[in-house]
Every structure is written in C-alpha cells, then in structure tokens.
Computed example of a mutant assay.
Amino acid sequence: MKRPVIVWFRRDLRINDNPALFHAASAGSPVIPLFVFDTELIRFLPSDGAAFNFQAEALTELAASLKALGGRMVTRRGDVYKVHESLIRETQPAALYYNRDYEPYARDRDLKVGSIYRQRDIEVRTFADVVVHEPQEVLTGRGMPFVVFTPYANAWKKLDHPKPLKKPRPMRSSRLHTGGVLSAGELGRTTSIGEPAVHGGEKEALKLWRRFLRSKIHDYAKNRDIPSVEGTSRLSAYLRFGCISIRRVLDDCIKLQNAATPTAVSSVGKYVDELIWREFYQAVLYHYPRLLNQSYR
C-alpha cells in the first residue's frame, strides 16, 4: 500500500480549485487532510472570537465535503512543529503538500515545518493559491518590487492569469485520531457581537459570489462607497480563509467583462482593481516584512 500524502490546510478551507488537495488526490496515494489549531498563532491573533467561529463553520463544512470524496479531516491542537513531528511518526507519510502563505509568521513557520519533513527525506510540495500572482512574479523591469500601486497593477494585468482547477478526484484516507473542530469558546475566546453578518464555508461563499455576479457587480463602481447601499461582494472573510478561490473570482470577472455592457465592464474592472489592491498589499508585506511594525519611509 502506498504511503499517505498529508495535505495541510491553512488559508484554503475549500474543496474546489485547491491546488494542494487537487494534486494530492491525483497522486493516487491515501490522503490525510490536516488542520492544526496552532496555539502560538492563536496567541497573537485578535482577542475577539468572531473569526474563530467563522473558521469553525468553514472547517465543519470542509470536513463534510472531504467525507463525500472519501477523505477524513484530521484536526490537532498544539505546537505546530510538535503536531507535525507526531503525525510523521504516526503515519510515515510519503509527502507533505500545502498552499503557500506570504505573511511573515507563516513564511517562517512553513520553512521550519518543511525542514522537519526534509530532514526525514519526506517530499514537500507547495503551491500558489492565496493570490493570482505571487509576490515574486510581479516585479519592475529591473527585477525590483513595486512600492506604488498603479505601476504594480499595470504589470499585474499584463501577466497570463492561471485558470481554476477542477474538483479533486475521490480519495482514500486513514482513520486517525482527530480533535474535532474548535470554536471560539473552546479556544478561550469570546465574541462581542450577536448574530454574525456572514457565516463561514465554501457554499456560503459561492452563494454570495453568484448573487453579486448576477446584479450588484454591474453597479459596483457607483455603489461600493455608499454605506446605505449593499453594493459590495462581502467576500473579504471568505477570501481571507480561502472559502472561495481567488482564481475563480477573477476568471468569472473576465468572462463577465467579455459579455457585459460598457457600464458593467467599467464596474467589473473596478472590482478587479480591488482584487489587485489585495495582492499589492500582500506583495509589499512579503518584500518588506518590517512594515508590520513601522511605516515604509
């Protein structure tokens, strides 16, 4: 029997167009979908628990979607490095697959986790996912990072944009101990709000996105800055947690631009500009991590 592949979920809590999951399922080995409640990361996150409850909803749906494909989600809580070391001893994996993250803590963590596997001659494969174009892809003619948005956006738009992947193949998973999905209260956090404005999960993300595409995006340029009008997509949290693929969002926008009226084309273009702003900020933080704590100049 083939040794399993661990797919480490982080900011990609979905089934569709998930590169790490897609390629692991295509490899034909048993798949161990893993999510770690990283106690060190949790300690530094904002104290309000709303985001943790959103994450719990997304993870609950993800576990059900994986089960429908034959997979079984494994969750563990604790020191992320010790969790991986323990899972290696427990499963003797052939490889670790995950989608790359670009924030300073994540980059340092991923480097250390990767070394744990490589020191044991276990393959580590990583994939682009959080952004359409990774920070090192969008550079000046001299190979330097952009620090001004407009030239960054112009360079970004000239690149060939990757297409969304298909749904992953059915998979096999080992039956391992799992800690379940932990909500805010179970992680020692409380929420300051009552009923949340949005609920986590891929299905909810796709529902909001389809609704926005049908009508609201056509007037986005006009309505996006009017507080009394619900003129935005409300996808921020879903993109942050990866409940919807950024490639799917961009691909749908491009298709709509090719078929829409001139006014709608302008509004869709404005929405795409906001997606590029999102990537610009991540690129700046990637190249200049000191900006977490100080100004650029």
Rank of each mutant, 00 (worst) to 15 (best):
E40L: 14
A51T: 01
L275C: 11
P262S: 07
N258W: 09
V74N: 02
V124S: 02
V80F: 07
M171I: 14
F241Q: 10
V229L: 07
A68F: 05
G269C: 10
P151F: 07
L213N: 10
I254N: 07
S233N: 06
G185A: 11
R278H: 13
N16D: 08
E202A: 15
S29Y: 06
K166Y: 06
R278A: 09
V147S: 12
F280P: 04
F22V: 03
D225I: 01
P33W: 03
W277N: 13
D17A: 03
A221D: 13
E40Y: 11
P262A: 07
S233P: 03
E40D: 13
A50P: 01
S65W: 10
K157F: 13
D225G: 06
G269Q: 10
S245F: 01
K167P: 03
S183Y: 08
H287F: 13
S65I: 08
F212N: 00
L291R: 07
P135M: 02
D252L: 04
R169G: 04
A153E: 12
A94I: 05
R142N: 11
R172M: 09
L239C: 02
A264E: 12
P164K: 11
K166F: 09
V80L: 12
K67N: 14
R247H: 05
R10H: 10
S266H: 10
R210A: 09
G200L: 07
H84I: 15
Y296R: 12
A237R: 06
K163G: 02
K112H: 14
A68L: 11
F37H: 12
Y152K: 02
L250T: 03
W209H: 04
P93C: 08
A20Y: 04
